[in-house]
Design a protein around this nucleic acid. Structure first.
Length: 388
DNA sequence: TAAGTTCGTATTTCGTCGTT
DNA sequence: AACGACGAAATACGAACTTA
C-alpha cells in the first residue's frame, strides 16, 4: 500500500551554490532560497538578502523552482517543508534545498503534511551524518514510503491538517504578541520610558530595590554532586525563554548545590547579564541561579512588573552597547546606573494588576497552545494510518 | 571570594570539493 | 552541470577561568 515518493514526482532535484560553479550572487534579480526561507509549510521569499542575476538563473536550470513545488530542507536541519504558492516569482535555491515536483497522483498539501509527520521524520533518520550535520540525499527522498489513499481522501486529510495547523500557528502568534501588549499598556499609562514625556521623577535603578548577582561558589561549577536535586536552578536560557514569568527550568540543585548558592524568593525579577543580555523574567517559585543572572527585588513589591516592562524597552540598547570580548556581558554597575522614571506607587500597582490579568491570559493561552499541539500530533498520527 | 573576562561545546548554516 | 559529501564559518549558549 505505501508508495515510493519517487513514483509520485516528475522531478526530485536540488540546488547548488552559484559560487561553486563560477557564478556570483547579486544584489537583486531572482530570489535565492536557503533553509531559513522554508518553514511551517511556507516559502518565504519576501526577505531581500540573497539574489542571483536573471542570467545565472537561466543557467542554473536544475534548481529553477515552479509554483506548486514542494520544497524540503536536506542539509543541516532536514525535513523542513514549504509549498511554493501559485503567485510566487521566479525562484532558485541552494544545495540544502530539495525540490519535489509532484504528479497528479499526489496532493501537495498532503505530501507536505506527510513529510512533516513523525513517520516521515523516522524514515529520514537514515540520512548520512557528516561531522555534526545531516545530509539527506535525493535518492533517499525518492525511496521514502508514503501511504497513498485516493486523491479526494488525500485532500480531505490535508484540509483537516491545514485547519488544525492554522489554529496552532494563530495561537502561537497571539502569545508572541502578549509581550508587545505589555509594552503598549506601559506606554499608555506612563508614556515612552526613554523620553519620559509625563515628567515622572527619574531615579537610579539601583535605588529602586536590591540588585545582586546570583551565586555559584563551588568549583567546578558543574560538579555532579551539586546537581540533580529538588531545587530549581535557573539558567540564562530559562530567563530568556520565559516570556516574562519563569515557570520552567532545565536544571536542579541538590541540597549541597543550594548551600553553595543562594535561594531567591518567588517574585524576584531575573535579569541576564552574560551571553543573553538584559532578558528578564519574574520567578514564580523559589529558585537559585548562577552569577550570569542578576536578581532584583523591589523596595515596594508593586514595582517588579513595572521594572520588568521598563527594562524590556532598554534591552536592545543594552545588548548593542554591551562590552564585548569573546562574549557580551553587562555588570551590576551598568544596571544600577540606569535612569528609571518612577511614577507614583498607586499607578505602578495598577500596572502590576493589569499585567497579572495578562499573565492569566498567557497561562490559559499557553495551555490551549499545548492542547492544540497535542491535538495536531494526534490528528497527524491518525491521518496517515487511515484512521481519520 | 566577588566580580569581571575568556573559553568550550553544540548546533546550524553555507560555500566548496571530487566524482560522474 | 548534477550530485553527494565535507568542513569552515557563524551562531548560540552557558559555563570556566583570572584577577584584585
Amino acid at each position: 500500500m505505501p508508495t515510493k515518493l519517487g513514483e509520485l514526482c516528475s522531478l526530485i532535484t536540488k540546488g547548488t551554490t552559484p559560487t561553486s560553479v563560477g557564478f556570483e550572487f547579486s544584489d537583486s534579480g531572482v530570489k535565492f532560497l536557503r533553509v531559513q526561507n522554508i518553514f511551517d509549510g511556507k516559502v518565504n521569499y519576501a526577505d531581500d538578502t540573497l539574489f542571483i542575476s536573471a542570467d545565472v538563473h537561466k543557467v542554473l536550470k536544475r534548481s529553477q523552482i515552479a509554483p506548486g513545488d514542494v520544497l524540503i530542507s536536506i542539509a543541516g536541519t532536514i525535513g523542513r517543508t514549504g509549498i511554493v504558492p501559485d503567485d510566487a516569482p521566479e525562484l532558485n535555491c541552494n544545495q540544502a534545498v530539495a525540490i519535489l515536483r509532484t504528479t497528479e497522483k499526489v496532493d501537495q498539501s498532503y505530501l507536505r503534511h506527510w513529510l512533516e509527520s513523525v513517520e516521515a521524520q523516522r524514515q529520514m533518520r537514515g540520512a548520512t551524518v557528516t561531522g555534526t550535520i545531516q545530509n539527506l540525499s535525493l535518492s533517499q527522498i525518492g525511496d521514502l514510503q508514503i501511504p497513498l489513499p485516493p486523491l479526494p481522501e488525500q485532500r480531505r486529510i490535508a484540509a483537516i491538517l491545514d485547519q488544525a495547523d492554522a489554529l496552532r500557528i494563530k495561537r502561537r502568534e497571539a502569545l508572541a504578541q502578549l509581550d508587545s501588549l505589555a509594552q503598549s499598556i506601559f506606554v499608555e499609562m506612563f508614556g515612552d520610558p526613554l523620553t519620559n514625556p509625563k515628567g515622572w521623577p527619574v531615579v537610579k535603578f539601583g535605588d529602586v530595590g536590591n540588585l545582586d548577582r546570583g551565586i555559584s561558589k563551588h568549583r567546578p561549577r558543574n560538579d555532579p554532586a551539586l546537581l540533580g536535586g529538588a531545587h530549581p536552578l535557573i539558567q540564562t536560557g530559562d530567563v530568556a525563554n520565559s516570556g516574562g514569568y519563569i515557570r520552567a527550568y532545565k536544571s536542579t540543585y541538590s541540597d549541597l548545590g543550594v548551600r553553595q548558592s543562594k535561594l531567591w524568593p518567588r517574585g524576584t525579577l531575573c535579569i541576564t547579564i552574560a551571553a543573553n543580555i538584559a532578558k528578564t523574567g519574574i520567578l514564580t517559585f523559589d529558585a537559585c541561579f548562577p552569577d550570569s543572572v542578576v536578581g532584583f527585588s523591589a523596595n515596594e513589591e508593586a514595582t517588579v512588573e513595572y521594572v520588568r516592562v521598563w527594562l524590556s524597552f532598554l534591552q536592545k540598547t543594552l545588548e548593542e552597547n554591551a562590552p564585548e570580548s569573546a562574549q557580551k556581558n553587562i555588570n551590576l554597575a551598568i544596571l544600577r546606573g540606569l535612569d528609571i522614571p518612577l511614577p507614583p506607587i498607586e499607578l505602578r500597582e495598577h500596572f502590576g494588576q493589569a499585567l497579572r490579568v495578562q499573565m492569566n491570559l498567557a497561562n490559559s493561552g499557553e495551555r490551549s497552545a499545548k492542547q492544540l499541539d497535542a491535538m495536531f500530533a494526534s490528528l497527524q498520527h491518525r491521518a496517515f494510518r487511515g484512521e481519520l
